[in-house]
Nucleic acid binder design. Structure first.
Lengths: 335, 335
DNA sequence: TAATATTAGGTAAACGGTTACCTTTTTTTA
DNA sequence: TAAAAAAAGGTAACCGTTTACCTAATATTA
């Protein structure tokens, strides 16, 4: 493959001149020379070697996106937005799928440091509370190696991050159900700390305000449809089953609807259901699903902005906060 | 950041020795020396610089996945499989989202060459027939720069590729509907050449065998739910509306169901619907959708295998062929 | 015990760019 | 018209590895 040396030789100039022309740097070059260099580059089918460039400049113009799942629309939609923003700034992205595995996450971090990415946007996995430590390790490890970091989905000190006020989202969902007259409200959470834990807290706090104990109607699923399905069966076959269920994500809420249908419980007549996140699924299922929606576009844009800010040299961490919005569809009814 | 020079200096050996220890190459090293080097590496928090390594070795251990959409489950599921396969082999992947834009696709190809990826798995976008040329240009451009290429979704000469026999998939769908007694079968395709065009051909051929002209019941959508919805409205409001509709992908089929519901047409009683691909959506919608399913896992595995084969030096192109499978759910009924 | 192999390590070129610092020529300015 | 400035280009060190080729010491073999 042709290099700038080949071009330099062909044209009869030094590589410095070739490099300057190719990169359009601010250094005077005679028009004719420039022309000849560009023509030679064309003829030799020259392609700049980004690897060599990165080595020389110490910047790769690459950032990584570390997300728990690439088959989950919540993350891919955010990713798509982030990608187009960073593309505009001339960055390429590694999309890394951690599959909710702490171990894979750490391996990726190690790898990204070795690859000298300029920045990372990171939605840490936190299946068990103690995972928080591994998350933190990963983040400090990145920072220690001069890699810009932006997180979303969990909260960390001294890190630029997107914070979604999911606590109030959960409160809103519960209040809505209370207003509809529900008193027995089930809650399917996800065995995870961080975001979903705050949702649970919002749920409990709001119930307590209304003088209701919710603890025993909490159950943990695996964040997939199957999990929602199984949890719903357990909840609905209790002696005193809930009249409404909140699931901590979209897929599990769909699982709840499926389970209810199977055992002949009508939604929304006999059971109200609320999910988190939003997707085509929630709109398409019957009845369509009332959800606590997170502002995907805003999250994506903000994450990209925070990262770019750091890549441009800003060192102080910034937190951007968003609120959720309750999107009312057909899956809830007054009792 | 620490380099092998720092380690070499600290231990009092040459960088060659350090490099050998770090990479565990087949070269004898005294146990004690090895120990001291590893300790020094640890203490200095050494991270190998993949960039420098790539430059020296001429291989990046990176492959790119070029797909039309990262929010479409069909592609992300395949991607996930490919990713885990390649991960096992020590490759990292760039997931590139072409958004069905030929222009973006070409930009990516340019960029991937500059980044010297070792290989590319590519599902080319072909919105108009003439895009075929751009697709081919991209593929030859990659090959010309010694980058291994595997394609899926379109057919090219002399390229390792996954071929899904979608023609027979369409035939099967039509035959199924014919057997159910349908004679007026609408077809919503996607303005695209390649795969979807072969589906159309399968549709037409099979109808012709049965002595039916299908041309006028063909209509083109945008591959999104909205497109399916609009096309369905057009088809269903004809004088002589179809009693069955095949949509060339999943999302448009969902759009058809939505449209039918809105104008009071019952599925499957008044209208049978078949989609292509498969996803949770098809299972969750009511009635659940009968689809022509593509073997995602097999496609992903085969794509990875074909690429690895090339990365290991095999130069001859290999084509792997898969058949679709008709998954019968509730959206069709005999007339 | 001399010849040969093996072990252990070092030297330096190469990978393909960038860029600080020079030099020479031409143009501008006072 | 001499001095200063701008234009045009070159030289070579540097980025952090790998690796072919060497050397020296030690172990093995006949």
């Amino acid at each position: 493959m042709a290099t700038i040396y080949d071009i330099a030789e062909k044209v009869g100039v030094s590589v410095a001149t070739v490099s300057r022309v190719i990169n359009g740097v601010n250094h005077p070059i005679k028009g004719e020379t420039r022309q000849r260099i560009l023509e030679a580059a064309q003829e030799l089918n020259y392609r700049p070697n980004t690897i060599a460039k990165s080595l020389a400049q110490g910047r790769t113009h690459t950032v990584a996106l570390l997300i728990p799942s690439i088959t989950n629309n919540f993350y891919t939609q955010i990713s798509e937005i982030i990608e187009s923003k960073l593309d505009e700034e001339g960055y390429n992205i590694y999309l890394c799928n951690t599959k909710r595995s702490i171990e894979k996450e750490s391996r990726y971090v190690e790898n990204l440091i070795a690859r000298r990415v300029d920045g990372v946007i990171f939605s840490p996995t936190r299946v068990r509370p103690e995972d928080n430590e591994a998350n933190l390790d990963n983040i400090t490890e990145l920072s220690r190696n001069n890699i810009a970091v932006v997180t979303f989905g969990s909260r960390f000190p001294n890190v630029s991050q997107i914070y979604i006020n999911t606590y109030y989202g959960a409160c809103e969902a519960v209040r809505y159900l209370l207003k509809l007259g529900h008193r027995q409200i089930g809650f399917i959470d996800g065995l995870t700390a961080g975001t979903r834990r705050r949702r649970r807290k919002g749920y409990l706090d709001t119930l307590k305000e209304a003088g209701i104990e919710g603890e025993e109607l909490i159950i943990s699923g695996d964040l997939e449809m199957e999990g929602g399905y199984r949890c719903a069966l357990q909840l609905l076959q209790r002696n005193n089953p809930p009249t409404a269920v909140i699931a901590v994500n979209n897929l599990m809420a769909i699982g709840v609807i499926k389970a209810a249908k199977e055992i002949g419980i009508k939604i929304p007549e006999d059971l109200s259901v609320i999910g988190f996140d939003d997707s085509l699924l929630s709109q398409v299922i019957e009845p369509s699903l009332t959800v606590v929606k997170q502002p995907l576009v805003e999250i994506g844009n903000a994450a990209a902005r925070l990262l770019i800010r750091q890549l441009h040299g800003e060192t102080e961490a910034e937190t951007v906060e968003f609120n959720t919005r309750l999107v009312i569809r057909e899956s809830c009814r007054a009792r």
